[in-house]
Simulated scan of single mutants.
Amino acid sequence: MTVHFHKEDLPAGVLAGDAPLAVDTETMGLITHRDRLCVVQISDGSGDEHLVRFGPDSSYDAPNLKALLADESRLKLYHFARFDLAAIEHYLGVVAAPVFCTKIASKLVRTYTDRHGLKNLVDEVLHENLSKQQQSSDWGGPDLNDAQREYAASDVRYLHRLREELVRRLEREGRLDIAQACFDFLPTRARLDIAGWPDHDIFSHS
């Protein structure tokens, strides 16, 4: 298991094939327009994770990464896809779909709990310990320290295994179809966030 660090783009040919891709992002905060994209993490589940760091003056011209994210033949795995999809589309200009979101899947099948964070999910479903100590660190600095790199890598390390178990549970509970409909809508939900409707329920009567 190796964590590979790249600046501004992935090397050509990295992550070739057709395996699903686990994807995550680190930003300067939670407001997409204000808080720039700093890191994209990506893994094909083979044991290595790739971190692509973007500097404060980045043009986000990352053709290899963009091509991979925009490849409609490869499933993208996220935890809270809504946020990552918005950040990727706003800064990189691509829709990183099709989508599987482990947080939505968790909410649809783990209805016995309100704890759907990645750490909780990894702990219960995979019996692994995931540290979130670096979650609120400064991702915009001149470099990433070892703790930050490990944290960023761990956010995509478990998503393939989580998907396998969550699909089993969704099938067991007869909720795979509704989950898929939610996943299919997520790029549009992210686009609504970018366009200015992050909190308003446009489907409500009011």
Rank of each mutant, 00 (worst) to 15 (best):
A152M: 11
R161S: 11
N145R: 09
E165Y: 01
W139L: 05
G140P: 07
R172I: 01
F185M: 15
A181Q: 14
Q180N: 12
A179D: 01
E164L: 08
R172N: 03
E171C: 02
P142A: 12
W139F: 11
N145Y: 01
G141I: 13
C182S: 14
D143Q: 07
L159K: 06
A147V: 12
F185N: 07
A153G: 14
R161W: 01
E173S: 15
L144S: 02
V167L: 06
L170G: 02
Y151S: 08
R175I: 02
R161F: 03
I178N: 06
Y151N: 06
A147E: 15
N145H: 07
S137C: 11
R157W: 07
D177M: 05
L166Q: 11
F185D: 09
D177W: 00
L162Q: 03
R149K: 15
I178F: 04
Q148N: 11
L170H: 07
S137M: 10
L144I: 05
G174Y: 10
A181P: 03
P142V: 07
D155E: 14
D146F: 05
E165K: 07
G141P: 03
S154R: 07
D146C: 01
V167I: 15
D184A: 15
R169F: 00
A153M: 05
Q180A: 13
S137I: 05
R163W: 04
R168V: 02
A181W: 02
R172Q: 08
R149D: 06
Q134L: 04
G140E: 04
A153T: 06
S154A: 14
R175F: 00
R169D: 03
L162W: 01
H160V: 02
G140H: 09
S154W: 01
E171R: 05
V156S: 09
